[in-house]
Structures are given as structure tokens and as C-alpha cells.
């Protein structure tokens, strides 16, 4: 057989090489592909057998999935609207969410008549819904959102969503979460429901927030840009946030978490929302240490390094838990 030393070099790179191969292939299939690109690819392939083998393998999987295109014709011959594509594949998620939705049904049916569609994301997931009227809803990690048939009422059952709503005076868009109702008056706003705490941040335009049950309740407020309404444990308050803070809160839309002067425990809690591995700050004294940080939403490894190398703390892996201590 060949010299084992060479295999060590290749071994280092196998996953990288396969990822590179996948990138080459999808680039050639989904994007503008010029003569120069082809030359570059050919050059990459000529560099080693490893590149060639990885590329053959990825070509093979590409060609194999060709069969899936059959689903398009047979399933939805005329549908052009993208909001319902590939429903078969989401069937399981929808079924799971439907069970969750059943719990909240009683008060809802008479309001809407139709049940509409449930959209979910898993831990670390993110998705954007484009509504037919041009409105956009971005779902953050671990979120359940239902939208009624005419797409003007949304229930945030869990998690966080950023709404960019095309205003329609005759049919205002309403978001219901944790017993509160947010009615848009031409708006971009963020709604986050942590279970025991609801936060509505207004980014642009205006919105009204009121109690869901009693419409003429005194607890109604008009939100203007920078306003953050917080409802927790029966109390309700509106505070102002700086544009920077607001931008930081929306950074998940770029797969990033940005913290200014945040405590270590806050950073860990936030990062835990997006990942299966959970940071646990074992020592209350270090939990209150303040840091500034920019971390990718999936940056578990990066945060481990920061905690260990820059803060000089101990990091211990215990399966799904990462214990941080002094």
C-alpha cells in the first residue's frame, strides 16, 4: 500500500474536502457559472485524488436526488405560491405543533373560523415566512407560530418572531401572545415569549398593545420606535431602548448574538436558546461578571474558548451540559 504519511495529511482534511466539494457542486448548479469558474473547479480537482473522490461522491448524491423532482410535478402541478411548498416534509413538525396548538384551541375557533397554518422551528432553527401581501415574519429558535386562513392574525405560542408587516388599514395585522394583543399600525416589531415573560419591541412605525381578553382595558399602550413593552407576572410596563440595543436584539436575524455589558449568565442563557449543549454557570460570583461579546448563535465552541482563554475560567464538558466554574 501507499506511504501512510500521506494518508495523515489527507485525513486532516476529509471533512473540509467534502464540504468544499459540496460547495463547488451547488455553486455550479444554483448560481451563475462562468468559464472561469469551471477552470477554477478543474484546477481544484486536478490538485489531488482526494478532491476528485469527494467531488464524485457529491455528484453521485446530487444525481440521486434528481428523482425527488418527480415530487414537484405529481404533488403540486399548478401551485406557484411558495408559502406551502414541500408540505409533505414538514408534516411531522406540523403534526407535533398541531397537538401543541390543540391546547389553546377553545378561545380561538370562534375568533377566526379557520385554523390556518402552524409554523415551527427547532432549537437553533430559524425561518422566514413570506406572506402573499409582501409582509414578512422571521421565526427565531424554538418557536411555534400559527397564522389564520386570511393571514392577518398570528399566534405566537412560543419563542420569538420579528414581524415586518405591510399595513392594511381595513385589515390590521394582529399578533396574540401570552394573553396580549399587538395590533400593527404600519410596523416592524419583535415579539418574544419566554413563557413567563412577554416582550414586544417596536422597531419602526406604530403598534398598539392591549390585553387579549378585555378590549377596552386600561392596559393598552401605543408603541413608537424604541419602545419595549414588557409583560410579566401580571405587571405591564413600557420602557425605551436605544437603537443600538434594539439592533443587538435583532442580531439573531444574522445568526449572531451581540451583547453590551451583559452578565455572563445572561450570555449563557441566550446562547442556550439556540443550542442543544447548555452552558451552566456553576458559581454565582462569576455569573454576574460583565462582558461585551459577539457570538454566532451556534458558537458553542467559540464561547467555550472565550470563557476559558479570556476569562480564565474552568470549562468542563458533561455530555449535553457545559459547566463553567472558577
Amino acid at each position: 500500500m501507499t506511504n501512510p504519511i500521506s494518508c495523515e495529511q489527507d485525513a486532516e482534511a476529509a471533512q473540509n474536502v467534502r464540504m468544499r466539494a459540496a460547495t463547488w457542486l451547488q455553486r455550479s448548479q444554483f448560481w451563475n457559472w462562468s468559464e472561469a469558474d469551471q477552470i477554477e473547479l478543474d484546477r481544484w480537482l486536478a490538485e489531488s485524488s482526494s478532491h476528485q473522490v469527494a467531488y464524485i461522491r457529491i455528484k453521485a448524491v446530487w444525481n440521486r436526488t434528481e428523482r425527488l423532482t418527480a415530487l414537484r410535478q405529481s404533488a403540486n402541478p399548478s401551485r406557484k405560491n411558495g408559502s406551502r411548498f414541500g408540505r409533505t416534509f414538514f408534516a411531522r413538525a406540523i403534526a407535533a405543533a398541531a397537538i401543541a396548538a390543540l391546547i389553546g384551541f377553545t378561545g380561538i375557533r370562534y375568533l377566526t373560523g379557520t385554523v390556518g397554518t402552524t409554523w415551527t422551528t427547532s432549537v437553533g432553527g430559524r425561518r422566514t415566512l413570506a406572506l402573499p401581501d409582501g409582509s414578512k415574519i422571521e421565526l427565531n429558535t424554538s418557536t411555534v407560530l400559527r397564522i389564520n386562513g386570511d393571514q392577518r392574525i398570528a399566534w405566537l405560542d412560543r419563542g420569538e418572531a420579528y414581524f415586518q408587516i405591510k399595513h392594511d388599514r381595513a385589515h390590521p395585522f394582529v399578533v396574540i401572545a401570552s394573553g396580549r394583543r399587538v395590533v400593527d399600525i404600519g410596523t416592524k416589531f419583535l415579539v418574544r415569549d419566554d413563557g413567563n415573560r412577554l416582550e414586544v419591541s417596536l422597531v419602526e412605525g406604530r403598534a398598539r398593545i392591549e390585553s387579549e381578553k378585555v378590549r377596552a382595558n386600561t392596559q393598552a399602550a401605543i408603541l413608537t420606535p424604541g419602545d419595549v413593552a414588557i409583560s410579566a407576572g401580571g405587571s405591564f410596563s413600557v420602557t425605551k431602548k436605544s437603537a443600538t440595543n434594539l439592533a443587538n436584539e435583532l442580531s439573531w436575524r444574522r445568526d449572531l448574538l451581540v451583547f453590551d455589558n451583559a452578565t455572563l449568565v445572561d450570555v449563557a442563557t441566550e446562547l442556550n436558546r439556540y443550542n442543544q449543549e447548555k452552558f451552566i454557570i456553576a458559581d454565582p460570583n462569576i455569573a454576574r461578571r460583565k462582558i461585551d461579546a459577539s457570538i454566532p448563535t451556534h458558537g458553542v465552541q467559540a464561547f467555550k474558548r472565550v470563557v476559558r482563554d479570556f476569562l480564565g475560567l474552568r470549562v468542563e464538558d458533561r455530555g449535553q451540559e457545559i459547566i463553567v466554574s472558577r
Binding site: 448560481w31 413538525a93 432553527g125
Partner: peptide, 19 residues
């Protein structure tokens, strides 16, 4: 993963370009 799946479905099954 959900997001990845959505994009792959649009690309491979629905036949959309990357753009």
C-alpha cells in the same frame, strides 16, 4: 435541519435558483 431542509427543497424539488 429545518432551515437547511427548506432551502434544499426549494432548490432541488421546486427547481429554484439560488437567487
Amino acid at each position: 435541519p429545518p432551515r437547511c431542509r427548506e432551502i434544499v427543497v426549494l432548490g432541488r424539488i421546486e427547481g429554484l435558483t439560488g437567487r
